[in-house]
Amino acid sequence: MIIDHPLLGPRDAAEFVYKGDAALIDRPDWQAEDAADKFHEYMYLRDNVAGEMAELWYHEHGDRSWLVVTRNTLTHKITSVELARDVARRRGRGK
């Protein structure tokens, strides 16, 4: 599998570590009323998608960047690769 890194171009998947569902970017508000329930969901509950899924990949043997890779779990076809920090900023994160 080849991941087309947005800065470095096509790289072999062996350089990356799979870090799971990109929903991990959306850390719940710890001050909310239902914070305990939200954190339980955040920690333990994952959708088991058969199809297109946004995933986190870490470029460990590379530039150490975190990526959001949109991949079809049935075909391994990758449709988009973005820097995770760009995705997080777009969702309103400051850093």
């Binding site: 470095l8 096509p10 790289r11 062996a14 350089e15 043997h61 590379g62």
Partner: peptide, 24 residues
């Protein structure tokens, strides 16, 4: 080296981190 080292992909002064024989 898993990187493409052809002139068109890896010109003089190009640099990259990768993995060779399981070593970074």
């Amino acid at each position: 080296c898993p990187l493409d080292l052809h002139d068109s992909a890896f010109a003089v002064d190009a640099a990259g981190r990768t993995v060779m024989e399981h070593m970074s």
